[in-house]
């Protein structure tokens, strides 16, 4: 009789835990990672493995320093951060670059703020932006994708978005980009970060996550739609200067960002309404940076900026509590 558990209600708990979510996201990232491995070969495998191992190692170190025990190591968040970071790096990233990225992601962005749940910015994204600002040359030399090879030699090549920005600066028009086949970036046969090259594989992962209820449709759909609609409007206004919306869909880190980074639980709004605001905001900032900014790609910056706005969004998008007058009723 003395052995009964006297915990408060409810006595039933769902089987979906943090681990479920983390490992589902990792699973959903695998198609994208696999495409990266196929086109970038051994190099990609090296980057992914190193990034994951280092992130887990630093997570363990941080937990040790903070005296938290190794229990949280099992939640998979460090593995996920490592994988996401790797997918945001060029496939020829040197080891020291990955090391710095992991330090920034795990120590500076996550554990300085208190570990999983307390960080206000997406660790992998902060690491990516830190590296991009610190080492722009290394971070923007993308190897050309080719079918699977064991060779570590690479030829670097600009991304379609980079080409577009250059051409605009130089000639005031889109140049070759206007006529390129959009099937290549859709499948993944164009330059870019390791994990962002295949819109198709990333979309598949996104559909899996939404179907399994790990993420909701709000952020990815509003994010991608906003980018589509805005680039479409500009394209209609001046197709010489602005690329087609489909081009913006399939190039750069949009899919990776919208599906896997913007939806990060910890750093995105919690209410459905807030998620929509967040998605639209991310989309608008991405478009502005891509079309008018100094950098060719704006997904990382857009998401980080909106991460900063998340507490504010949450505060102003509280759902109407049951039994309270709706806004319309309150006015009447």
């Amino acid at each position: 009789m003395t052995n009964t558990v006297l915990s408060p209600a409810p006595h039933l708990r769902t089987t979906k835990t943090i681990e479920t979510a983390m490992y589902s996201v990792i699973l959903a990232l695998l198609p994208g990672a696999a495409v990266g491995m196929y086109f970038f070969g051994l190099n990609a495998i090296r980057v992914i493995a190193l990034s994951i191992v280092l992130c887990v190692a630093f997570e363990a170190l941080a937990l040790r320093i903070r005296g938290r025990g190794m229990e949280p190591l099992k939640d998979g968040s460090a593995v996920l951060t490592g994988l996401l970071l790797a997918m945001n790096l060029p496939s020829n990233s040197p080891a020291w670059l990955i090391l710095i990225g992991c330090v920034v992601a795990i120590l500076m962005t996550k554990h300085v703020y208190g570990g999983l749940g307390y960080n206000s910015f997406n660790p992998a994204l902060v690491a990516r932006v830190f590296l991009l600002i610190s080492f722009p040359v290394v971070m923007t030399s993308w190897p050309e994708p080719k079918s699977f090879t064991l060779s570590l030699d690479t030829v670097t090549k600009a991304t379609p978005l980079g080409d577009m920005k250059m051409s605009l600066l130089l000639n005031g028009n889109l140049g070759d980009i206007a006529n390129m086949s959009l099937m290549d970036p859709f499948i993944g046969r164009l330059g870019g970060s390791l994990g962002e090259i295949s819109a198709l594989a990333l979309l598949a992962g996104g559909i899996f996550l939404i179907a399994r209820g790990i993420i909701t449709w709000h952020i990815p759909v509003t994010y991608i739609t906003t980018v589509f609609v805005m680039t479409w409007i500009y394209w209609l206004l001046d197709p010489v200067k602005y690329a087609s919306p489909v081009f913006h869909m399939v190039t750069g880190g949009l899919m990776l960002g919208a599906i896997f980074m913007a939806t990060d639980y910890v750093t995105s709004p919690i209410t459905p309404k807030g998620m929509i605001v967040f998605g639209v905001g991310c989309g608008a900032i991405t478009v502005f940076i891509r079309l008018f900014g100094g950098y060719p790609e704006g997904v990382s910056f857009a998401i980080l900026l909106m991460n900063a706005a998340t507490p504010l969004i949450d505060r102003y998008t509280q759902p109407r509590v049951f039994g309270y007058p709706t806004r319309k009723e309150a006015k009447a």
Partner: peptide, 17 residues
């Protein structure tokens, strides 16, 4: 990079251009 004779530096094209 644009087909001329002036060597740009690694990575950075915009400023030399």
């Amino acid at each position: 990079k644009d087909g001329g004779d002036i060597d740009q530096m690694t990575g950075a094209t915009i400023s030399p251009r």
